[in-house]
C-alpha cells in the first residue's frame, strides 16, 4: 500500500525514525532498538547495531522526552536535536557519518522532495535533527491508570496494592528522592551502586564531565511505562522489576563494595515481600493505556 507523503516535520521524522536508510549498511533504523510496542525501548540488555555489533548500555525509552534536560545514560547531549544524530554516527549503533547520511538523503528522490516541501530546503544536518526530534518530542504518554487516579479522582483506576505502593514509594522506600516530577525522574545523575571498578566498570557521567565525583553516576531514568521496558539499569543487568526492587532494598547484597554509591542507598530498606509487591503494582500502574490493550 502506498504510504501518504509526510506533511509535517513530525511526520517526516517518524518516517526517518523507522527507515534503515540512516545506517551504514541500511539494516538498522532508530526503531530497530527503540521498539514502538515496548514504549520505544528494547527487550534485551544491549541492542545489536549494524553487523550485530554490541555496545555496553541498555536502550532507554525514547518516550517522554519533552521535559528532559539531558540525554543518554551519561547525559552527553543537552538537547534532543543533538541526541538524535549521535546514534547515527556511533559505530556500534548505525555507523553512518552524518555527512554521509545527508548525502544519501539528498540522492533519494522521496526524501529530497519531502524535505523541500516541509522545510523549503534540501536535507541538511539541522533539518534532519529537527524532523527526528520533533517526532521524539511527540511521544508523550499521560494516560496511565495512575494518571487516571490522580488527575480524574478515579479511585477505581488503580488497585489497593498500587495505592499502598505509591505511599511506600513516597516514604519508606525513598524512591521519590530521585524519581519525581511528571516523568518520575529529575535532571540529576546519581550513583546507585553499579560501579565497583572490578566487575562493573562503566564510569558513566564522569567520562563526560571529567569529574571524579561523577564516577559511576548515570541519568535517573523515567518510570513511565517501566513495566514494559525490561531489562533495567544502564547495563540491563536486572531482568524484572522485582529484581530492581530487591536491589534497592539491599544494594550491598547484590554488588558489595561498590564505589561512590549514593548516601540515599546506604543500608537496607527492610521492605517486606508484601511491600515489594505493592511497589511493583504501583510501577505497573504507570503503563500508558495504549500498551495495556
Amino acid at each position: 500500500m502506498h504510504e501518504p507523503e509526510p506533511a509535517t516535520s513530525l511526520e517526516l521524522g517518524k518516517r526517518l525514525f523507522f527507515d534503515p536508510i540512516l545506517s551504514g549498511n541500511r539494516t538498522i533504523s532508530c526503531g530497530s532498538c527503540h521498539k514502538e510496542n515496548l514504549a520505544f525501548a528494547d527487550s534485551v540488555a544491549v541492542s545489536p547495531g549494524v553487523n550485530g555489533r554490541l555496545g555496553t548500555r541498555n536502550t532507554p525509552s525514547a518516550m517522554n522526552m519533552r521535559f528532559q534536560e539531558s540525554f543518554f545514560w551519561d547525559g552527553r547531549a543537552t538537547t534532543l536535536e543533538q541526541q538524535v544524530l549521535i546514534p547515527i554516527e556511533n559505530p556500534v549503533e548505525m555507523d553512518l557519518p552524518v555527512d554521509s547520511a545527508i548525502a544519501r538523503l539528498n540522492t533519494d528522490a522521496f526524501y529530497r522532495q519531502s524535505f523541500l516541501r516541509i522545510f523549503k530546503e534540501l536535507p541538511s544536518k539541522s533539518n534532519l535533527a529537527k524532523a527526528l526530534s520533533d517526532f521524539e518530542r511527540s511521544l508523550e504518554t499521560s494516560d496511565s491508570p495512575f494518571d487516571d487516579w490522580r488527575v480524574n479522582d478515579n479511585e477505581e483506576a488503580v488497585s489497593a496494592s498500587a495505592k499502598r505502593g505509591f505511599k511506600l514509594f513516597n516514604t519508606k522506600a525513598k524512591c521519590i528522592q530521585c524519581h519525581f516530577g511528571p516523568d518520575f525522574n529529575n535532571v540529576e545523575f546519581r550513583n546507585i551502586g553499579l560501579f565497583d571498578g572490578k566487575m562493573h566498570v562503566d564510569s558513566g557521567r564522569s567520562a563526560i564531565s571529567h569529574r571524579a565525583s561523577d564516577l559511576g553516576k548515570f541519568k535517573i531514568g523515567s518510570l513511565r511505562n517501566i513495566a514494559i521496558t525490561a531489562p533495567y539499569m544502564h547495563n540491563g543487568m536486572f531482568k524484572t522489576l522485582k529484581e530492581v526492587i530487591d536491589y534497592y532494598d539491599n544494594p550491598e547484597a547484590v554488588i558489595p563494595n561498590s564505589m561512590n554509591r549514593d548516601t540515599i542507598l546506604t543500608g537496607t530498606l527492610q521492605l517486606t515481600d508484601a511491600e515489594k509487591a505493592d511497589i511493583e503494582s504501583f510501577l505497573i500502574s504507570l503503563t500508558d493505556r495504549r500498551f495495556l490493550k
Binding site: R66, F67, E140, D143, D147, R150, V151, G181, P182, D183
Partner: peptide, 12 residues
C-alpha cells in the same frame, strides 16, 4: 492536592 502537567500527574 495534586499537580498535573500536560495531563501527567507530577506531584501530590
Amino acid at each position: 492536592y495534586d499537580g498535573i502537567v500536560n495531563g501527567k500527574a507530577f506531584t501530590t
